[in-house]
Nucleic acid binder design. Sequence first.
DNA 1: GACCCGCGTTCCGTCCAATGGAACCTCCGG
DNA 2: CCGGAGGTTCCATTGGACGGAACGCGGGTC
Lengths: 262, 262
Amino acid sequence: MTADPTPSQPARGKRPPHGEPVVERAFALLAAFDARHRSLTLAELARRSGLPKTTALRLARVLTGLGALERSEDGAFSIGVRLFEIATLAPRAQGLRAVAMPYLEDLGLVTRQHVLLAVRDGEEAVLVERLSAPGADPVLYRVGGRLPLHSTGVGHVLLAHAGFDEQAAYLARDRRAEPEGVPVRADALRRDLAAVRRDGFAVVARPAPAPMVSVAAPVRDAAGEVVAALSVVVPDGGADVRHLVPAVRTAARAVSRGLGGR
Amino acid sequence: MTADPTPSQPARGKRPPHGEPVVERAFALLAAFDARHRSLTLAELARRSGLPKTTALRLARVLTGLGALERSEDGAFSIGVRLFEIATLAPRAQGLRAVAMPYLEDLGLVTRQHVLLAVRDGEEAVLVERLSAPGADPVLYRVGGRLPLHSTGVGHVLLAHAGFDEQAAYLARDRRAEPEGVPVRADALRRDLAAVRRDGFAVVARPAPAPMVSVAAPVRDAAGEVVAALSVVVPDGGADVRHLVPAVRTAARAVSRGLGGR
DNA sequence: GACCCGCGTTCCGTCCAATGGAACCTCCGG
DNA sequence: CCGGAGGTTCCATTGGACGGAACGCGGGTC
């Protein structure tokens, strides 16, 4: 028995010392999708989530059974409608959107360009809604996508009203470049944010692909806390955009009132 | 060992013979939320999901860490923005919505009432988008909510183009009442569905709370499969609603073209 | 036509992550 | 002062999760 014709014993099923908790792994599968990858094969899913193929398959099947994922006839996975259904119950996303929608539409009809509604999640803003007029210029951000806090109108509003500590942490670390490599000066940004708090609105210009200007205002909840920001984005024609300020602020206050705030 | 001074040994940590898989339990927590319960305390979460309090807390914390749930200062849980972000990647929900939006808006401006966009999920329709004109009548369904397949315009369209087996199964079993208790005749419904397939649109009246009529048409993908339905809902004034048919069909075809279909 | 590669899938021996009762704290209302 | 409910930590136990091996298959290369 020294010379074994099968040199390696089977050694089936070895769980490696440290596996992340199951739920986190399942979530990693969901997180493997992004705007450029809305449909993934099992192999892609396994690669992008960093999970072994077998584990990815098992979990993906469970998620498919729950409706969180869907599987098309060719075997590819995508995010399921059931997950969308649950996500519509998020107070800060769909809940907010529901009360804001009419006012956003009004604003869109008046300005005939883009209207954005965003909330802050950590160090970025998440776009909750975007309305774009048919003739409007390039498409900037995607609903459900993330925007940087510096360099966008809604970002400035959200950052200006963030908690003191969070704001300080952001300013200390995260002053990367954004449009095409221009670094953001922390002290200039700090002054801007103070002005936003004082004036109740933000105006941010972006030379990026096409020159655009954004006018944004805060949305408050019943407790007076800033919970979202709303903005219009128009082409920067050098003309005066200040005349948009009253409309944007009025719309933001209307939404706030819809939330029970002032 | 017959008379034990401490009658019950500690017996800590007893895993009951059958626990559902972890992922399903985590999902049960998410599924505990609904339109009337968008914010739940730990105790409510445990009750509604059927999980022990301890387990509910542990899983809810994991989900909170992942961003699927959020916890407010008063300790209540709600669906998180991160989950919304992922859900926007669902091709059949947000993906569809993105291409349909402009046409829905056009339709809304023309009819000045409600515009609906829905997909089928099992034996129900899920509302992907709803646009309501400011002056429009009562609010019927919620984005992300579910509609019955019989008794709604989009439902008829989706059911009419469902797979043969699924349609037969639905007709055999599920002819419950809907508006206020009127049972649906299977044979009548079957005739209606045939007409929908033949004519390319559906007209469904509802006496329910206020009398409304819905005109719906199918949306097809690149392969020609019906993947969604789109409709306008207007008050039933006895007037002719047929004049809405061309507009609805045109919009539906425009969306289909946007999906790469005919 | 033999070979290789990548994908999706099933199988199953191993073992650690998940489990939930006990116990403690706090905050109410009576 | 006490009973009840909500939220939390602790921890002994074990069954569900794990993933390498192995297979069938389709498509590309030599």
